[in-house]
Amino acid sequence: MSGVRKVASAVALLAIVAVLSLGAAAGGMGPFFDGIRALGTFYLSTAPPQIAELVLGPSYRGLSSYSPEVVTSIVWDYRGLDTYFETAVFFLAIIGAVAIYRGIEEPVLRRPASGLSPIVRAVTKFLIPINIAVAASIALHGHLTPGGGFQAGAALAVAPVIVIVVFSRRYLLERGVTKLKALFLRSVGLIGIALVVLIPVIWSVLSGEWAWVMQNQWKPGAEVFSYPAYLGGALISGSIWFLNLFEFLAVSFGFTILFLLISIDEDTVRSCMIRGGEECDRY
């Protein structure tokens, strides 16, 4: 009976793959092109400044996002408001988790933090700085090479998870990574994103010239405002570098809050939730 069941589940999985492949091959995903589609050609030829200059001539800045990494320029410039609201949805979820866990803190001195074996701990101590360096490079080079704020934030969020599993939750708290600090840094990231988005509008109100929400380089009809594309000779692609940086802060510390919260001992959470807030405050 168990054998028949196993075969049936394998056949079912294969059938799902086969049906999806058949649908895709029969044109269910729209027509396949050999070359690049017209919209793709537009993005590829306008996003990187050098190519935009060649293709469009001196008027290129009105269409260019000054970022050679086309995916990031689509995410943060061409369709930036989509990304803004995606970020908002993600952070509403985190605010929900924080609200559910409000007032719940694990008692500090429960048992000495031991963690996994010395070998695992030693390897982890080497891996964590590498993880942080890779995440920072993904974020700060996000406008030049594949990557960006969300990718980097997700990469950095792996570090607290590993520390919680290999060492302990207490180890992380003793090193200063607390919920309050994470909330603060996450808020700094969110406020930074909102500021970068709104600075063109604030500038527009103050100066009387026209500028769009989330404008990066000047656009036709809003020619005066423009984020600096170069900083000290280095290409920073205007607002894209700042948005990547703030998204990196917000995502990584948002995930850190979540993992700090869900790693609280279940008995503590349960006693707090059942007996009410008064009991929890003594921790």
Binding site: G147, Q151, A154, A157, V158
Partner: peptide, 26 residues
């Protein structure tokens, strides 16, 4: 799609299994 890889690896190999493991522990 290297951009997808960069977000896919930490989320599906790091964060998602970790969330599931925390759930399994309960």
């Amino acid at each position: 799609a290297p951009d997808i890889v960069l977000v896919y690896v930490p989320v599906t190999v790091g964060i998602y299994p970790a969330a599931l493991l925390f759930l399994i522990r309960k």
